[in-house]
Design a protein around this nucleic acid. Structure first.
Length: 274
DNA sequence: ATGGCTTAACAATTAAGA
C-alpha cells in the first residue's frame, strides 16, 4: 500500500501533471493540498476516470485539501470540528479549508495543509500557532478513537536544521522558528513518527523549492512536506520517497510528492516485497 | 534585495504563498 502527499498549488492548473503522475505511479492513495478550488469546480471526474474516488474540502482561490483513493474511501471527516464538536476555536479555524480525513483499508488517513505564517511575529504567524494548538487537541481526540493514524501533508515547518538548505541563515525565521518547531514536536508526542527520517538521516533531501531566485536550479529547497505514522504503521513501513523529478517539469508545482510504502495490511504478502 | 516567481481573481493590479 502506498500513500502520497502533494501540494499541487492549484489542482486545475496542475491537472495534466497530476493525472500523468497517478497513471505512472498508481499509488493507492494521494492526498492533495492547495487545490485552490471550490467543491463544485473540483475536477473529480478526471480522477474517477483513473479509478480514484475523491473526498474534497475546498474553497475559492485559497487553501483546499482532497484525498484520492483507489481503495474504498469511507467515513470522510472535514475540519477540526469533526472531532471537537462544539469547540469555538475549531469552528473559527474551519473557515480555511485545511483539514480532511478518511478511513481507508483500516487506516485513518489525515491530510493537512498547515498555515504558512507569513513572517515571525505577524498576525498570520499567530494564526499558524493557534492552528497548531488546535491540531494538538484534535489529535488527542483522534487518539481516543484508537484508529491507526497516517497524518501527512504540507506542514510548512522544517522540523530540524537538516531540513533547511542554509540553517545558519534560516533558523529562527518563518518555517524554522522555535515556537513552530516546538508546537509540531508537542502535537507529535511519543506517538507519531516522521517516516522519511527512518530511512534517510541526511540533509539535502527537499520537498519544496521556491519559485524565486533559481532555488530549483541551485537545489536550495526545504523538507516541509511530511508523513507521520503511529507505531503500528511505522512497523509496516518499507520506504519513503520524494518524487523530486516532478519539480523539474514545465510549469511545475513548487512542491514534490512524498510517498510512503507500507506492508499493509500486515498479513499482505504482496506488499511485503515492495 | 521588505528583492527574486507563480497563482487566482479580475480585467491592471492585488493578495498570498513559503
Amino acid at each position: 500500500m502506498r500513500i502520497g502527499s502533494w501540494n499541487v498549488n492549484s489542482v486545475r492548473t496542475r491537472l495534466t501533471q497530476v493525472l500523468a503522475w497517478l497513471e505512472q505511479e498508481r499509488p493507492e492513495v494521494l492526498c492533495l493540498q492547495e487545490t485552490k478550488v471550490d467543491d463544485e469546480r473540483f475536477p473529480a471526474e478526471a480522477f474517477e476516470a483513473l479509478g480514484y474516488a475523491c473526498a474534497i474540502s475546498g474553497q475559492k482561490a485559497y487553501n483546499g485539501v482532497a484525498i484520492l483513493s483507489r481503495l474504498p474511501l469511507e467515513d470522510v471527516q472535514i475540519g477540526f470540528s469533526a472531532l471537537l464538536p462544539g469547540d469555538a476555536e475549531a469552528e473559527r479555524l474551519e473557515e480555511q479549508k485545511r483539514v480532511i480525513s478518511a478511513w481507508i483499508d483500516g487506516i485513518r488517513v489525515l491530510n493537512l495543509y498547515v498555515p504558512n505564517g507569513s513572517a515571525v511575529g505577524s498576525d498570520k504567524y499567530g494564526y499558524k500557532l493557534e492552528w497548531l494548538a488546535c491540531l494538538r487537541c484534535y489529535l488527542e481526540a483522534q487518539e481516543r478513537q484508537g484508529e491507526p493514524l497516517c497524518m501527512l501533508g504540507d506542514f510548512n515547518i522544517g522540523p530540524e536544521d537538516r531540513d533547511l538548505p542554509d540553517p545558519q541563515r534560516l533558523t529562527g525565521g518563518i518555517m524554522a522558528s522555535e515556537p513552530e518547531r516546538q508546537a509540531l514536536r508537542e502535537l507529535l508526542g511519543e506517538r507519531l513518527h516522521d517516516v522519511f527520517r527512518v530511512f534517510e538521516p541526511g540533509s539535502g533531501h527537499w520537498s519544496w523549492w521556491d519559485y524565486r531566485s533559481g532555488a530549483w536550479e541551485r537545489d536550495q529547497g526545504w523538507r516541509i512536506d511530511h508523513i507521520y505514522l503511529c507505531e503500528e504503521l511505522l512497523a509496516c513501513a518499507t520506504g519513503c520517497v520524494i518524487h523530486r523529478a516532478t519539480r523539474g517539469q514545465t510549469q511545475p508545482s513548487d512542491h514534490a510528492p512524498v510517498v510512503v510504502h507500507l506492508a499493509w495490511p500486515p498479513d499482505d504478502e504482496e506488499d511485503e516485497q515492495a
